[in-house]
Design a protein around this nucleic acid. Structure first.
Length: 298
DNA sequence: GCCTTATGCTCAC
DNA sequence: TGAGCCTAAGGCT
């Protein structure tokens, strides 16, 4: 269930833990037959772009992973028991031995936490990775990865120039809320960030792209980068400012206060008290405050 | 247990 | 525009 923040988080952690090592790569239930082509190869580096991951095992040996809506990595220590579920792929450095204190693989995210103050991008004790539920897990050539980069818009976590995205948006009649989710316009933004970025900009989600002032687009882009980065560290997307939270709590707020509008339909806006709205648009739920994000010119 | 929902995306019509 | 696909959690009964 990842947006760009999580994808880049995985890339950094897996780079730190595994790059430069020869890996055992296996597909326990055969859902990824090409695992054999990667097994016993050295992982050179891990790349991230938008919501895509690329594990480079050599020329034309890129493991392309897209987690889709449900996919997830489990990382931790070598498990002692076989996990259940539709496992796609498992990787670990050759030579790693199971540990007595190994954790249960089905306990989602059980071996690190964003809430106890110990979370960090620096992985500790990771010697094993497991992938399940991914929309894509496939062996790619370098050309296929290049083609991906060509069709993706700029990624704020990659230091990209946002101008191509601004140009696309400013020439489109499509609602800005749909454009923000379009990975060929901007890559890495998903349903939470689009709703929250629009709220923070006090922008009407139904405004046509071409009607949004360039200054507003620049502000959204600038706003998005630290928010995405914070989401990389915490594995939790927090978009509210402390002064807007009912508890005024700084640091990690209670979970009811992490978002302004996302999944808060029917509840009062933290700023103006109006009920947050929800509506399906382009197949996804859009959340917004009809007062703070009122239509102005359309 | 069953139903709904979910931070995505592709393909066919 | 709609169906389909992938898996897990949470809310219900």
């Amino acid at each position: 269930m990842p947006e760009g923040n999580e994808i880049h988080r995985w890339a950094e952690r897996h780079n730190t833990a595994f790059a430069g090592k020869k890996l055992r790569v296996e597909s326990p239930n055969g859902r990824f037959p090409d695992a054999t082509a990667l097994d016993n190869q050295k992982l050179e580096r891990v790349m991230a772009k938008g919501k895509h991951l690329g594990y480079v095992f050599g020329k034309d040996r890129i493991l392309h992973v897209h987690l889709g809506r449900y996919g997830d990595w489990t990382e931790g220590q070598m498990p002692l028991a076989d996990p259940k579920g539709a496992l796609r792929l498992r990787m670990w450095p050759i030579g790693a031995k199971p540990r007595k204190d190994a954790v249960t693989p089905n306990k989602r995210h059980g071996w690190y936490s964003s809430d106890d103050g110990t979370s960090s991008l620096a992985p500790t004790g990771i010697d094993w990775l497991e992938l399940r539920g991914a929309a894509a897990c496939e062996l790619w050539t370098d050309a296929e990865w290049q083609a991906l980069l060509t069709r993706l818009g700029p990624d704020g976590l990659d230091g990209d120039d946002p101008k191509p995205a601004f140009d696309r948006i400013l020439s489109a009649k499509t609602p800005i809320s749909v454009l923000l989710m379009d990975q060929s316009v901007l890559s890495g933004i998903g349903n939470i960030y689009r709703a929250e970025l629009l709220y923070r900009a006090r922008l009407d989600p139904f405004a046509e792209g071409r009607g949004v002032p360039l200054q507003t687009l620049k502000a959204i882009w600038k706003d998005s980068i630290p928010l995405l980065r914070a989401g990389m560290v915490d594995r939790r997307i927090v978009t509210t400012r402390p002064k807007d939270r009912p508890t005024k709590k700084t640091g990690q707020p209670p979970k009811e206060e992490v978002h302004y509008v996302y999944r808060r339909h029917g509840k009062p806006c933290f700023v103006c008290g109006t009920k947050i709205q929800r509506q399906e648009i382009a197949g996804r739920s859009l959340y917004w405050c009809p007062v703070c994000q009122a239509a102005t010119s359309h």
